[in-house]
Design a protein around this nucleic acid. Structure first.
Lengths: 330, 330
DNA sequence: ATGAAAGCGCTAACAA
DNA sequence: TTGTTAGCGCTTTCAT
């Protein structure tokens, strides 16, 4: 059963291909009623579906955009992706999702493939390790928005959270509750959010006149965090409060606490950067910092589509504030 | 900065387009070393990237497949999608993910659009409401695999879990623990997994000679579940055990328990169909039924790619057993 | 109000 | 070993 083409419809309806094309694209202006009806019937009869590929080749746009997430296991990634998809759907655009898995090689490949597939633009949660490629995209005026992470020395569109400020606020909250021995655990300081969160942490402590303690600052791969926590709580002066740099770090901390029969809120207060689903159901009280994923996604999509339609020049940077959601035992 | 085409490369290298095409497609067999080098240099010099769109139009395949999930909020959806993507990535195929959001209209649109975009095949978690469309795809020999849900009266490729058996086993487990007042809560019985889980529930009870009680069987939309639970536990004889039909129902139950200050395992035993992330960390002990999402995804992708390559005829049905993970208070 | 013809960027016989 | 040519299915002037 060969695929039905526009030529088949034209023949069936007894008109030319161009007329069918007009019809498909709803350019009815000068079209006779009977012609319309004949074409409509032929289409239904043959079960014709236009080939978007051919159209895209001609029109030089695919009505698709690509999303490349650094790691799909982060809750923010899925939240933002859903939001972008929402926005695109309303504008008759399709969004393709790719997962770089924190792997710069994969990221490079995805960027190249999507570009070659002629997607109209890209929203990237960058690994940060492919500066030359990012620069090349920008140099050729290819529509791109970078999400969540800023790249040193790259002038581009950014949509990010106020990592530094939110962290600072949360640490100050701990201090106001009487904590002075506050630790921080993040994954390696490879990308801007982690660096900015650390900055906020340091800022809050130094403003309160609390000295920084090297042993209180953990920056390790996920698999190593457990081990580092072990050392942290073996200190003569273990911390009374802990800041988890993201949801994945939080899970590691949970495992560690469970393992050691420690209780959140009792053995140490805990703050997590990232909103944790079901956190409000846990019996243990965890304070979280919620990033406005939905709003960030909407904004990124909006910027990208504007750039695609050439309604926008220059680069834009949007920093979204986060919300501190306090949940405490008493 | 116009896009570089194959013609530009050909001119730059002083050869013809076809030779460049050969080169791009690594058909080096009869190609002179110097020609190769010239082309290679021209490509690098111009920063040429082939246009996959044009290639696909010619070759009549896009090396893309589509995944249409019923509802991306189900954990199984994301797990299976990741697995499919993994498999495809190894075979140089791209997977596009679309979320029908339990909406048959959206599902229809996505199927039509992906088909029109010439994706090579589809893996669908069907809503079940577009039988005509499903049938049309199959009639025209378009490669499709249905995932998770079976459609009455549709001969097709299926990859599903052993819903009935796993549920029966889990209910028998409850019975062996002395429970006789066992309730079940699912979303509306619109799709086969829910129906099959109910069948398993009934089977286990009837085999044990326990009469079915209508009030113990809840089948409601997510928003109504709370209300139904209210009625359930207000009965003169409230159940001592509860079976949650999926992860979303589980969340509703958790909320309800939290609200009523009830404790899982104490006020009622709980079994959930679906593996819950972090379940092992909860202080409350929840027994879960884990579906092998990864394996199901691999199998679906395998079947689909075989069908695309025409290495496979007829329809195939794969039923995957599930694992009962028992977590109890004592 | 409709049709003819050129061309989007690439591939694949077939010639040379 | 490389070049010529004819499309893939559609859109888009420009005629008519």
């Amino acid at each position: 059963m060969a695929r039905v083409t526009m030529a088949d419809v034209a023949k069936e309806a007894g008109v030319s291909k161009s007329t069918v094309s007009q019809f498909i694209n709803k350019r009815y202006e000068y079209m006779g009623e009977d012609t319309k009806k004949k074409i409509d019937e032929a289409i239904k009869f043959l079960g014709y579906q236009p080939n978007y590929l051919a159209r895209s080749l001609k029109q030089k746009r695919t009505s698709m955009i690509g999303i490349i997430v650094g790691n799909i296991m982060h809750r923010l990634s899925t939240e933002v992706s859903r939001s972008i998809e929402d926005y695109c759907h309303k504008h008759d655009i399709h969004a393709i999702l790719c997962n770089a898995d924190d792997n710069p090689e994969k990221e490079r490949k995805y960027i190249e493939v999507l570009h070659a597939k002629q997607v109209d633009g890209l929203i990237i949660f960058p690994t940060g390790q492919n500066l030359d490629l990012y620069q090349k995209l920008i140099d050729e005026d290819y529509p791109v928005v970078f999400m969540d992470r800023k790249i040193e020395g790259l002038k581009a569109n950014y949509v990010v959270a106020a990592n530094r400020d939110a962290t600072e606020e949360s640490i100050k909250h701990l201090i106001s509750r009487g904590h002075t021995k506050i630790a921080i655990a993040t994954q390696p300081l490879m990308i801007s959010p982690r660096i900015d969160r650390l900055k906020g942490y340091k800022q809050a402590l130094s403003e309160a006149g609390i000295p920084l303690i090297k042993e209180y600052m953990i920056h390790a791969e996920r698999e190593q965090i457990n081990h580092e926590l072990e050392k942290l709580f073996a200190l003569k002066e273990p911390p009374t409060a802990l800041f988890a740099g993201n949801d994945l770090v939080f899970i590691e901390i949970l495992e560690f606490f469970k393992d050691k029969q420690m209780k959140i809120g009792k053995d140490a207060a805990l703050i997590v950067f990232d909103n944790i689903p079901l956190a409000h159901l846990a019996e243990t009280q965890v304070t979280t910092i919620a990033q406005p994923g939905y709003e960030m996604g909407q904004k990124a999509a909006e910027i990208l589509l504007k750039q695609i339609k050439k309604e926008q020049d220059g680069v834009h940077e949007h920093v979204f504030p986060c919300e501190l959601i306090i949940r405490e035992s008493s």
